[in-house]
Design a protein around this nucleic acid. Structure first.
Lengths: 184, 184
DNA sequence: CTAAACTCGTAGCACTCGCTACAGGAGACT
DNA sequence: AGTCTCCTGTAGCGAGTGCTACGAGTTTAG
């Protein structure tokens, strides 16, 4: 493996962590290059353009998040929509997951304004989560698994979005309300 | 009233409509000035800086949205959380409201990265919607109205966010699932 | 040994960003 | 008439953006 391919792997790893920590506001070419410890010139030598850098780093984060979720909510039990919502909500508002959710919201906004590579990126990741949720829904307890999964994913994304809007306090109340609804 | 105050009113009105139509990506000083039919120089004569322009235009949109919602969902009946969620979800995914929701998501992302004036703005608007929902919840049907309202607002915001991620089709399914849950 | 391919630094391009210095014209007040 | 405040255009500043032209050093292959 040549130097360039080595650097590609190393830089993406570092930048994924950087994006998770600082969000998309610190993601100009020069800022990314500084975070990776290289010059902006070299970043565009390792990668074709900024779009590719972002796409690769975000993709790296997507698999990291999928790994975490797989252990937090293993797919060996099928739940009702309310139970799955409550369980996933508890996970999503955890401190360890907050950077992911914050970045997810920034990505969605970037997609809303048509920025590459976020339009395709959030579509793929969103579809992945829909499938992930659907695989954890008890088929007997829900008539339309796709619709139910979309409603649950919306609930989870909304919790993350609301947290950046009005702060963590109302979110804790919301999670407890969802857990109460799942019990009752 | 002098020319300057006249222009302040007129420009904000035009820019609110511009933001609603184009989102925050077309919101540089020069783009805003062009949309308002004035020079960027004059925009900074009418207002102190870009932050004030955005804050006023967004505030204008907030009251416009509140007006619309007040007629779409008048506050004369108290609903269960599931019923309120289903009714509001149907409204929120309507074509007329989509520009508002898209802008709302972009604002939340701007707040997430600490941009003025969005941090304070989304907090005020978010708190307003929480109160708005709480006033429409049947106190007898819910133990913790604040938590329930936060959960509902998260559900609604999430529908809007998911729409820009994976498109309108799964959202329709989600709304129908929410309506089915409210019936059953 | 020579030439090609790979690696990387310097410098800078053309552009947009928010914002401002300066000057001039129009109308009002003394 | 003279001054003064209000209004507005021109022109540009300094910083930041993504990206590139050019050349030099190093490694590798024939």
């Amino acid at each position: 493996m040549n130097v360039r391919d080595d650097q590609r792997l190393r830089v993406i790893e570092v930048l994924a962590e950087h994006l998770l920590r600082t969000g998309l506001s610190q993601a100009s070419l020069r800022q990314l290059a500084a975070a990776a410890g290289v010059s902006d010139r070299m970043l565009l030598y390792y990668f074709t353009d900024k779009t590719e850098v972002l796409a690769l780093a975000m993709g790296r984060l997507a698999v990291a998040l999928a790994d975490r979720l797989a252990t937090a909510l293993p797919g060996d039990e099928r739940l009702s929509p309310a139970a799955l919502t409550a369980k996933a909500a508890r996970v999503v508002v955890d401190d360890d997951y907050r950077p992911f959710m914050r970045l997810w919201i920034e990505s969605a906004a970037a997609a809303a304004r048509g920025e590459a590579p976020f339009v395709d990126l959030v579509r793929q990741i969103g579809d992945g989560f829909l499938a992930w949720l659907m695989a954890r829904l008890d088929p007997a307890s829900v008539a339309d698994p796709a619709g139910a999964a979309a409603a649950i994913l919306a609930q989870l994304d909304g919790l993350a979005l609301l947290e950046v809007c009005v702060g963590p306090a109302p979110i804790r109340g919301a999670v407890e309300a969802l857990e109460a609804a799942a019990r009752g």
